[in-house]
């Protein structure tokens, strides 16, 4: 059999693609599908098999959500709060810093690296450093507060501040990603638009609202979707910043993913954990679809 050069190119392309496809099927998709299966079973991980229980796990989650001091309810409310605080903060900060970075020439590479470094740092390492910064009495932040004669703050050791304290770290870690993407978006906007606007006498504020922001819409949508998903899946920071990794104090920082982990690997209720995963999957899916639908607008000039 003879192939033309073009055909041979295509075949080798598929050959290489199939390797990564295989990886995705085995490492990503298959376990995902299994999680659906597990969510319909009463399976303790030490047992070889769990009986099919239909929607029982989902019913139990529903029931647990209404119990007093429910961990599941706390997990879902907190997860929503993480998104509500984290996503806008990350986008606004990211855009602000990106606009400033777009203005400077000197040291711009240095600033980009500095802002991006936390994003590629392990969440566990970040959590440890921030745990020390947040330490009551001896932590750097409280030392500074004391020096300024301000009262000490408990941060992660108080249920009133813990969630916000963790969100702050998550934003600090992820803002670098938003900055880089915004920068790329800003540089895509043709200089001619700005020139035309200035000739027409538009001020900086009008230029920002009339040109920069609308033309950044695809970037904003992209970042909103991605950062929402990342806040919905918050885990490592919470696990390493709450006492004994339990999402405390008093469940004030726990997230859905953390409860999945605790149910599955501390209490061995794999079916229950699987059902929580499935719920989270649909929540993420629904939110993403809604965001794509309502945030996407085309602006042409």
């Amino acid at each position: 059999m003879k192939f033309t050069l073009r055909q041979r190119q295509i075949i080798s392309a598929y050959l290489f693609l199939s390797v990564s496809l295989l990886f995705f099927i085995v490492i990503r998709w298959y376990p995902t599908l299994l999680a659906f299966n597990i969510s319909f079973r009463d399976w303790n991980v030490f047992e070889s098999s769990g009986p099919w229980v239909g929607m029982d796990n989902f019913a139990e989650i529903w029931k647990d959500a209404f119990k007093p001091r429910s961990a599941v309810r706390a997990a879902f409310t907190n997860t929503i709060l993480y998104v509500a605080y984290g996503v806008p903060l990350q986008l606004i900060l990211g855009l602000g810093v990106a606009l400033l970075l777009a203005q400077i020439r000197r040291f711009s590479a240095f600033f980009r690296v500095a802002y991006f470094a936390p994003y590629v740092t392990s969440a566990v390492a970040i959590a440890f450093v921030w745990n020390w910064l947040y330490q009551p009495q001896t932590g750097l932040i409280n030392q500074v507060l004391s020096a300024l004669n301000l009262p000490d703050q408990p941060f992660t050791s108080s249920p009133k501040q813990a969630l916000q304290s963790v969100t702050a770290v998550a934003v600090w870690q992820n803002v670098g990603f938003a900055i880089i993407i915004f920068l790329a978006g800003i540089q895509q906007i043709p200089e001619t638009y700005y020139e035309a606007a200035r000739i027409d006498g538009a001020n900086g504020w009008q230029i920002f609202w009339g040109i920069t922001l609308p033309l950044l819409n695809p970037v904003i949508v992209y970042l909103t979707v991605l950062s929402t998903i990342s806040y919905l899946r918050l885990f490592a920071l919470v696990q390493n910043m709450s006492p004994q990794g339990t999402g405390g104090p008093l469940k004030s920082t726990t997230t859905v993913v953390l409860e999945v982990y605790r149910e599955g690997f501390s209490s061995y209720h794999m079916g229950y954990a699987g059902a929580l995963t499935v719920i989270l999957f649909f929540v993420i899916l629904a939110i993403t679809v809604v965001q794509l639908k309502f945030l996407t607008r085309r602006f042409d000039y």
């Binding site: 299966n37 597990i38 079973r41 098999s49 099919w52």
Partner: peptide
Amino acid sequence: LAACPAPAAPAPASSG
């Protein structure tokens, strides 16, 4: 897949 009475070979639910 979820509706299958028991998953095929390597599924954890039946592997033991």
